[in-house]
Amino acid sequence: MVQGSCLCGAVRFTAKAMSGIVECHCSMCRKAAGGASGAFFVALRKDVTWQGAEHLTAYRSSAELERAFCSRCGTAMTGANLVEPDDTIILAANALDGNPPGRVIAQEHAASKATWFEGHDEAPSFDGPYPGWEKLRP
């Protein structure tokens, strides 16, 4: 069981299990996370519960993907999920509380990595999307 929350505490999630964490260096994820990268993990949608979901605001970042943020403090709570959802949900690892078991398993869009950022260089690196998203499960 893992838990996450936004900066102001208005939105919280609980997930029964989590996949490994994928760090994304694309410019959209960097901007959405407000840092050098976005960090995301996958959970089964049916195993995620929300408190304060009425404070989530969705933003369609492309034709088929949308992200959710706390409307009060701006914390990214999800990654880029399909507008027509499947059985998984991509959650923001940046919002995790405590010391969850997940670790960075891959970096995606490494070609877009900020030149000033160094870290997680031991994780496999991909110049495009992480090819394991579809098989990634908790």
Results as ranks from 00 to 15, higher is better:
residue 57 T to H: 14
residue 57 T to Y: 06
residue 57 T to S: 15
residue 57 T to E: 15
residue 58 A to R: 14
residue 59 Y to C: 08
residue 61 S to Y: 06
residue 61 S to R: 06
residue 61 S to A: 13
residue 62 S to H: 02
residue 63 A to Q: 07
residue 64 E to Q: 14
residue 64 E to N: 15
residue 65 L to H: 05
residue 66 E to L: 14
residue 66 E to R: 13
residue 66 E to T: 02
residue 66 E to A: 13
residue 67 R to K: 11
residue 67 R to D: 08
residue 67 R to T: 08
residue 68 A to K: 15
residue 68 A to F: 07
residue 69 F to R: 07
residue 69 F to K: 05
residue 69 F to V: 01
residue 69 F to L: 15
residue 69 F to H: 09
residue 70 C to A: 09
residue 70 C to P: 04
residue 71 S to P: 08
residue 71 S to N: 14
residue 71 S to A: 15
residue 71 S to I: 00
residue 71 S to M: 01
residue 72 R to L: 15
residue 72 R to V: 15
residue 73 C to P: 04
residue 74 G to Q: 09
residue 74 G to L: 06
residue 75 T to Y: 10
residue 75 T to F: 12
residue 75 T to S: 15
residue 76 A to I: 02
residue 76 A to E: 14
residue 77 M to D: 14
residue 77 M to G: 10
residue 77 M to K: 09
residue 78 T to I: 06
residue 78 T to Q: 10
residue 78 T to D: 10
residue 78 T to H: 03
residue 78 T to N: 11
residue 79 G to C: 08
residue 80 A to D: 14
residue 80 A to S: 13
residue 81 N to I: 03
residue 81 N to Y: 13
residue 81 N to H: 13
residue 81 N to C: 13
residue 82 L to I: 05
residue 82 L to T: 09
residue 82 L to K: 12
residue 82 L to R: 10
residue 83 V to W: 13
residue 83 V to N: 12
residue 84 E to D: 15
residue 84 E to Y: 09
residue 85 P to D: 11
residue 85 P to T: 09
residue 85 P to M: 04
residue 85 P to Y: 08
residue 85 P to C: 04
residue 87 D to A: 14
residue 87 D to T: 09
residue 88 T to I: 10
residue 88 T to K: 15
residue 89 I to F: 11
residue 89 I to R: 11
residue 90 I to W: 08
residue 91 L to E: 11
residue 91 L to V: 07
residue 92 A to E: 09
residue 92 A to W: 10
residue 94 N to T: 15
residue 94 N to F: 12
residue 95 A to G: 09
residue 95 A to T: 03
residue 96 L to Q: 06
residue 96 L to K: 04
residue 96 L to Y: 03
residue 97 D to F: 02
residue 97 D to Q: 09
residue 98 G to H: 05
residue 98 G to W: 07
residue 98 G to C: 13
residue 98 G to K: 14
residue 98 G to V: 04
residue 99 N to L: 10
residue 100 P to V: 01
residue 100 P to Y: 15
residue 100 P to M: 03
residue 102 G to T: 11
residue 102 G to D: 01
residue 103 R to M: 10
residue 105 I to R: 06
residue 105 I to L: 02
residue 105 I to S: 06
residue 106 A to K: 07
residue 106 A to L: 07
residue 106 A to S: 02
residue 107 Q to H: 08
residue 108 E to M: 08
residue 108 E to P: 00
residue 109 H to C: 10
residue 111 A to N: 13
residue 111 A to E: 13
residue 112 S to G: 05
residue 112 S to D: 15
residue 113 K to W: 07
residue 113 K to H: 04
residue 113 K to S: 11
residue 114 A to H: 05
residue 114 A to S: 08
residue 117 F to V: 00
residue 119 G to S: 03
residue 120 H to A: 02
residue 120 H to L: 01
residue 120 H to D: 04
residue 120 H to E: 02
residue 121 D to P: 00
residue 121 D to N: 07
residue 122 E to Y: 07
residue 122 E to T: 12
residue 123 A to Y: 04
residue 124 P to Q: 03
residue 124 P to M: 04
residue 124 P to K: 01
residue 125 S to N: 02
residue 125 S to A: 11
residue 128 G to W: 03
residue 128 G to C: 05
residue 128 G to T: 12
residue 128 G to F: 11
residue 129 P to M: 13
residue 129 P to A: 14
residue 129 P to L: 10
residue 129 P to G: 08
residue 131 P to K: 01
residue 131 P to V: 07
residue 131 P to Y: 13
residue 131 P to F: 01
residue 131 P to C: 09
residue 131 P to A: 07
residue 132 G to C: 02
residue 132 G to M: 01
residue 133 W to Q: 04
residue 133 W to I: 01
residue 133 W to L: 03
